[in-house]
Design a protein around this nucleic acid. Structure first.
Lengths: 207, 207
DNA sequence: ACCTGAACACCGTTCAAGT
DNA sequence: ACCTGAACACCGTTCAAGT
C-alpha cells in the first residue's frame, strides 16, 4: 500500500543506533526497528539487503572520523601517533554496545584501514623499517583497537570489583579501584601509560 | 517418554563446544545441540536453566586452567609474569569462536580473576606499590586479555591484507604479512614485543 | 532425575501486491 | 522507489506428560 512516508537510509541507521545504545546489540530487531521508525518491519530491506548489512553500517558509523583531519600538521611522529591513537580510541569507544560487532568487523571497517595506513606512515617517518617496522605497527595498532574495545566491553569493572574483594586491599584503595568513574579513569591511565611505554620501547620520538 | 539414554552435563558442554568450533557461536542452537546429542532439544534444560547459562559454561571451560600449576617455583617476578601471561593467552585463544562471548563474560570468569590475583601478587613481589602498582596491573592484565581475544577474533588478517594492498609494499614483504601463517606468527611476535616493553617500562625484573 | 512433544511468542527473510 | 501484509522456516522457552 505504501502509505507511510519514506525513510532515508541514514534515518534508519540513526534510529537503529539509538535502539542499540539503549537496549544493546542483541536487542536490535528488524521488527522493533520498524516499529521505532513507524513503518512495517520489511521496509528495512529497501536500504539493506540483510540485517548483517545494517549492522555493518552501524559499525562503520561508530568507527568513522578516526582521521577527521585537524591532526596538527608539522608535528613529530610521536605526537601524531599519540593523537591518532587517542582519536581512534575515542571513536571505537563511543558506542560500547557495538563492541561485539566491532570485534568481528574491524577488518572490514574503512576507518580501521585508515588508521593502519596512518600508523605505518608515521612509523616510517620516525625512521623505522624492515621487520621492526612491521612488528611495531602491528603491536601499536592492535594495542589501540583491542585495549579500547575491551575497556568498554563492560568486563573490567566487574573484574576489578571481584579482584579487590578477594585481595586484602585497604578501603581507600578499594574505593579508588571499584567506583565506576574510578575504573574509567584507571582504564584511561593504564591505556596511556602502556601506549607511552610502547612508543619509548620502539624508539619513536618527535625529533 | 524418557526413552533416550541420559547425557551428563559435561557431555552436553563438550558437544556444544564442538559445534561452536565447527560452525561458530552464532550457529549454536538448542535444537541443533539436541540433534547432535541424539536427544530432544528441550532436554538441555535439565542441566542449564538458560542458553545463556550454557554459553557461560563454555566460556568457563575455554578460559580454564590459566593457572594449571607447574609455574616454575622460585622463579623471579618477570619470569613468572611472562609465563602466567602466555598461559592465559593460550587458554583465551584456544577457542577463537568464543571470543565475542568472552568479551562480555570475562568479568565473571573465575580464571580471569585468578589471573588478576596472580598478576597483582607478582607485581608486589617485584617491588611495585601504590598507584603505580594498580596502573601496571591494569595495563598488563588488559593487554594480555584484550590482545589475545582480538588477535583471534579474525579481524587482523583481513586488515593486514587490505593495508598491504593499499600501501605500495614490495611483494616479499606483502607475502610476509598477509599469509595466514605469517599473520599468526606476526601476531605472536607483536604480542611478545609489546609485553616485554611493558615489563621494561614498569621496571619489572627477576632480581 | 531425565526425556518428550506440543504449544507459545518471537525471530529474519521472501514475495506478490500495492502506491 | 518505497511500503505492506501474509507466509515460511526457524528460534528459545514453558509445560504437562511420560519413565
Amino acid at each position: 500500500m505504501g502509505r507511510n512516508p519514506a525513510r532515508t537510509r541514514s534515518e534508519v541507521i540513526s534510529v537503529a543506533l539509538e535502539l542499540v545504545e539503549r537496549d544493546g546489540l542483541e536487542a536490535l530487531t528488524l521488527r522493533g526497528l520498524g516499529a521505532a521508525l513507524g513503518v512495517g518491519h520489511t521496509s528495512v530491506y529497501t536500504h539493506f539487503k540483510d540485517k548483517h548489512e545494517l549492522i555493518e553500517a552501524l559499525v562503520a558509523l561508530a568507527a568513522a572520523d578516526v582521521l577527521s583531519s585537524n591532526v596538527p600538521i608539522g608535528a613529530g611522529p610521536r605526537t601524531r601517533l599519540r593523537d591518532l591513537a587517542s582519536r581512534a580510541r575515542q571513536s571505537f569507544t563511543q558506542h560500547p554496545r557495538l563492541a561485539p560487532a566491532l570485534l568481528q568487523a574491524s577488518g572490514e571497517v574503512d576507518s580501521a584501514v585508515e588508521l593502519s595506513r596512518a600508523i605505518l606512515a608515521e612509523l616510517k617517518r620516525a625512521g623505522l623499517g624492515g621487520r621492526r617496522l612491521i612488528v611495531a605497527y602491528r603491536t601499536l595498532e592492535t594495542y589501540v583497537i583491542a585495549m579500547s574495545i575491551f575497556d568498554f566491553g563492560g568486563a573490567p569493572h566487574h573484574l576489578a570489583i571481584r579482584v579487590a574483594r578477594q585481595q586484602s586491599i585497604d578501603p581507600a584503595t578499594f574505593e579508588s579501584v571499584t567506583t565506576e568513574a574510578a575504573v574509567e579513569a584507571l582504564n584511561e591511565e593504564a591505556y596511556v601509560a602502556g601506549f607511552e611505554l610502547l612508543l619509548d620501547g620502539f624508539d619513536i620520538h618527535d625529533n
